[in-house]
Design a protein around this nucleic acid. Structure first.
Length: 595
DNA sequence: AGGCAT
DNA sequence: CGTAT
DNA sequence: GCCT
C-alpha cells in the first residue's frame, strides 16, 4: 500500500466507543445536597458514595464542627466546590500562607502583574473571550504567548505555531522557575499529576464495558496536570490571580480555576482530598470512587517493584502505611508466601530498604557508582581507554534524583556482551544486590535487528495507528540496586548505547519524560517518528532514517534541509536532533519539564 | 470527536 | 505486572 | 483536560 509522504495521517486508533451513558443527575443539585447534608450534620437519605465521603471527612481530616476554627478561604472554596474540603490545607488566618500573590513579575516588561488586564474580571466569559480575535492555534493569543515565553526566547514564528511546538520554545529549569516565584504552583500541579498517575490502574466501568485497562492507555488527567505544570515552569513572569484561561499553553478554564485557588489559598479541593486519601470529584461534580487513597497509593508507588496495580491491591487490603505493609508481609499475613496477595521479591526488598531508596541518591553516590561502572567496563573488556560513561536521567538535568542512570559507549570496542560481563563483575565485587534478593533486571541481545524492527513499528503506526507492543528501547540495559561503600542501597540503571545512536540514546535517557513526550509529538506532527534510537520519516512507502537516508520534514510534512544540513551529514550530538526538528537547543538542565 | 510518546 | 526517560 |  502506498503511503502518503506528507500531510496528516489517519486516525490512530479505532476505538469501539459505547454510546454515552444517560446524563447524570443534575451535578449542581447533587453538590448542593452533599454540602447541605454535611454542614447540617444530619443524616438524610443519600447515595452510598456520599455517605462514605462524609464519614471519611468527618472522621479523619474534616473539622470537628462546621462552626469551629475554619478559615474564610476554607468556607469559600467548599462552597465553590460544592463539597466540604478537608481542613488540613486551610490554616487559620494568622498562619503564614504558603503562597503569597505578589504583584509584578521579575521578568515582566509590563512592570506589574500582566494577568491583571483592564476591565476583565477573572474567570468571566468576558475576560475569557476578550482576546479571541487574536488567538491562534494553542488557544493562547500572541500577546500572552510573548509574555509567557519572555523576550529572550520569543521570535516571530511563535505567534502562529501549535501548542506543542510553542511549549518546546520554553526554558524548563526549576531554578529559573523558583527565582520567578512560580515553583510552588508547579509543585502543586505536579503533585496532582502524581496522584492521578498512581490511580492509572483503575478500570473505568462505563455502560458495563471496561475502559482504560488496556495496555498503553493513559491517564489523561495525569497527563494534563503534567503539561500544565510544565507550562507554569516555563512561564517568564510571576503568575498571580486572576489567571485567565488560555493565558498560557495547556491551561484552559478548569486548570485556570485550580491555579487561582492554589495561588489564593495555597491549595485547591482535589489536592486536599488526595492528600487526605479521600475520593475526588470529576469536572461534573460526580465522586470518582476509584480515586480514594491517592496519597497512600502514590507513596506505595515510590517503591521499586511497586506500581499502580500493587498499590491499589494493598490499599484495598486496608493497608495504609509502609508499617502496615510490613506487618502484612509477615508469616500468616495476606502478603506472606501463600497469602492472598504474596509480595514480590523486589517489593519486599524495597520495603526493607525504604529508608535508603526513598531518600534518593546523593551527588557523591552518583560519582561513586559512575566510577564503579567505568572501572568495571575497563576490567571486563581489557580496554583501558575510550570508554564514555555519562550521567543521564534526573541526575543530569538537576542535582536531585531518585536513582542514578548512566549511558555507556565506546567508539571501537563492540558492546555485545559487555553488559552481562559488567553485571557479573559488579555482583562479584559485592556492589550489586544479587538476583533473587532485589530488583535485578537485564535486557540484552535486542540490538542486532533493531533498526528493521523499528522501521516496521513506524510503518505499522502510520497505517493502522496501532501503537507498538513494546515501548521501551532496545539497548542492552541493567536495572538493579547498588550497594554503596557506605552500605546504602541505591537504584541504578546502566544503558549501553552504540556510538552511532549516542545522540538519540542520550537524549532519550536525559529526558525529562514530559519533555520527550512533547518532542515526540512534534516529530509526529511533522510526519516523523522519534525514539531513543533514531529519527525516521516516510518516503515512497518506506520508513527511512533521518538524516542518513532522507531529509527531515517540516510544517506540512515537506522535506527540507535545515541551515547547515545536507545529504551525508550525520547526527553526532543532541543539538543535531533539535536542529532537524527545527527547535531551539536546550541544555539538559533546561529540559526539566515536571511530570 | 479523536488523540494524547516511545 | 513491572521496567525507562 | 486540552488541543486540533
Amino acid at each position: 500500500m502506498q503511503q502518503p509522504e506528507s500531510g496528516p495521517r489517519p486516525a490512530k486508533r479505532l476505538r469501539t466507543s459505547e454510546p454515552a451513558p444517560p446524563p447524570s443527575p443534575l451535578p449542581a443539585a447533587a453538590a448542593a445536597d452533599a454540602l447541605a447534608g454535611w454542614s447540617a450534620m444530619k443524616p438524610q437519605p443519600q447515595p452510598p458514595q456520599l455517605q462514605q465521603q462524609q464519614r471519611q471527612a468527618g472522621s479523619s481530616a474534616g473539622p470537628a464542627g462546621p462552626a469551629a476554627f475554619v478559615s474564610p478561604e476554607w468556607l469559600e472554596q467548599s462552597l465553590a466546590q460544592g463539597q466540604p474540603l478537608p481542613a488540613a490545607g486551610f490554616p487559620p488566618p494568622e498562619e503564614p500562607e504558603v503562597l503569597t500573590p505578589v504583584a509584578g513579575g521579575r521578568s515582566s516588561r509590563q512592570g506589574s502583574c500582566p494577568s491583571v488586564r483592564e476591565g476583565a474580571r477573572p474567570g468571566s466569559r468576558e475576560s475569557i473571550r476578550s482576546g479571541s480575535t487574536q488567538r491562534r492555534q494553542g488557544g493562547v493569543d500572541a500577546d500572552d504567548r510573548r509574555r509567557w515565553l519572555g523576550e529572550d526566547m520569543w521570535h516571530e514564528g511563535c505567534a502562529t505555531m501549535g501548542a506543542v511546538e510553542l511549549m518546546l520554545q520554553g526554558v524548563f529549569s526549576e531554578e529559573r522557575s523558583r527565582q520567578i516565584g512560580n515553583e510552588p504552583l508547579v509543585q502543586a500541579l505536579s503533585e496532582l499529576s502524581k496522584y492521578e498517575g498512581a490511580l492509572a490502574a483503575d478500570s473505568k466501568l462505563e455502560g458495563g464495558v471496561e475502559l482504560g485497562s488496556e495496555r498503553g492507555e493513559i491517564n489523561e488527567r495525569a497527563l494534563q496536570y503534567a503539561r500544565a505544570a510544565a507550562s507554569v515552569r516555563a512561564c517568564a513572569y510571576r503568575l498571580c490571580p486572576p489567571v485567565r484561561a488560555h493565558q498560557l499553553p495547556f491551561v484552559a478554564e478548569s486548570t485556570a480555576d485550580k491555579i487561582c485557588q492554589i495561588l489564593e489559598t495555597g491549595t485547591c479541593a482535589p489536592l486536599e482530598f488526595f492528600r487526605a486519601d479521600q475520593p475526588v470529584r470529576d469536572s461534573r461534580g460526580r465522586v470518582r470512587p476509584d480515586s480514594a487513597g491517592g496519597a497512600t497509593r502514590a507513596r506505595f508507588c515510590k517503591l521499586p517493584g511497586v506500581a499502580q496495580k500493587t498499590a491499589e491491591r494493598w490499599w484495598q487490603l486496608g493497608l495504609r502505611s509502609f508499617d502496615d505493609v510490613e506487618r502484612a508481609a509477615q508469616p500468616g499475613g495476606p502478603l506472606a508466601e501463600g497469602g492472598e496477595a504474596p509480595i514480590g521479591t523486589e517489593a519486599r526488598f524495597s520495603l526493607e530498604h525504604r529508608e535508603d531508596l526513598l531518600e534518593g541518591t546523593r551527588r557523591e553516590e552518583v560519582l561513586e557508582m559512575m566510577a564503579a561502572v567505568q572501572a568495571g567496563v575497563q576490567a571486563v573488556t581489557g580496554a583501558a581507554e575510550g570508554w564514555k560513561v555519562e550521567v543521564v536521567g534526573g541526575g543530569r538535568r538537576s542535582q536531585a534524583a531518585h536513582d542514578a542512570d548512566f549511558c555507556v559507549t565506546h567508539p571501537s570496542v563492540p558492546l555485545e556482551g559487555v553488559l552481562l560481563q559488567l553485571r557479573g563483575h559488579l555482583v562479584r565485587e559485592g556492589r550489586l544486590f544479587p538476583p533473587g534478593e532485589a530488583m535485578f533486571r537485564t535486557q540484552h541481545g535486542r540490538m542486532p535487528t533493531h533498526i528493521e524492527r523499528l522501521r516496521h513499528e513506524h510503518l505499522r503506526r502510520l497505517s493502522s495507528g496501532t501503537p507498538s507492543r513494546r515501548t521501551l528501547d532496545r539497548f542492552d540495559r541493567l536495572h538493579a540496586i547498588y550497594r554503596t561503600a557506605a552500605g546504602r542501597a541505591c537504584r541504578i540503571d546502566v544503558i549501553f548505547v552504540p556510538p552511532d545512536e549516542w545522540a538519540f540514546g542520550f537524549l532519550g535517557w536525559v529526558g525529562s519524560k514530559t519533555f520527550l513526550r512533547h518532542m515526540r509529538r512534534l516529530a509526529d506532527d511533522r510526519g516523523m517518528f522519534l525514539n531513543s534510537h533514531r529519527l525516521f520519516a516516510v518516503q515512497d512507502g518506506q520508513s527511512v532514517m533521518v538524516p542518513d537516508e532522507a531529509p527531515p520534514r517540516h510544517a506540512g510534512g515537506k522535506p527540507h534541509w535545515p541551515p547547515g544540513w545536507a545529504p551525508g551529514r550525520r547526527v553526532e550530538h543532541e543539538r543535531d536532533i533539535f536542529e532537524l526538528l527545527g527547535l531551539p537547543y536546550r541544555e539538559p538542565h533546561k529540559r526539566d519539564m515536571p511530570g
